[in-house]
């Protein structure tokens, strides 16, 4: 049981990562793929934040008697990663809009067929 609780967060991380990864490789819809990619990235946020947690800790904002505090460094790193994630999503969406305009579809298979018939 103790191993279960100790590693539970990381197993969920692996599970979410694999779910996201599955959506990216198995789905043919370009938007769905990006959603999968987002789930994939979010799972990594969970990995980082989980490792920073300290038992009975509080948020790393210093107050009288606040200790122990959880580790602030993973928080900072993940703030950056979230920004990177939304940036990638925005560019992916812009690409999808252009692909729709150029091909009239956002299904991977239809796009392949159109390109192959050239």
């Amino acid at each position: 049981m103790s191993t279960f609780l100790e590693l539970y967060n990381y197993w969920i991380f692996i599970f979410l990562m694999m779910t996201g990864f599955y959506i990216v490789i198995a789905q043919g819809n370009l938007i769905k793929k990006v959603i999968g990619l987002n789930i994939f990235q979010t799972s990594v946020f969970l990995l980082y934040i989980s490792m920073g947690k300290v038992a009975n800790g509080t948020a790393p904002i210093l107050i009288e008697g606040g200790a122990p505090y959880s580790n602030p460094l993973p928080h900072v790193l993940i703030l950056t990663a979230i920004v990177v994630g939304v940036s990638t999503t925005a560019v992916a969406m812009a690409l999808i809009v252009r692909i729709q305009e150029a091909y009239g579809t956002i299904e991977e298979q239809d796009i392949h067929e159109q390109d192959a018939s050239l």
């Binding site: 987002n38 934040i49 920073g52 928080h75 994630g85």
Partner: peptide, 19 residues
């Protein structure tokens, strides 16, 4: 719940909002 309030704030605004 994992004490990452700043990150939670951002995730809510960005992930649930902007994205």
């Amino acid at each position: 719940s994992l004490d990452a309030v700043d990150v939670a704030f951002t995730e809510a605004a960005v992930g649930a909002g902007i994205s």
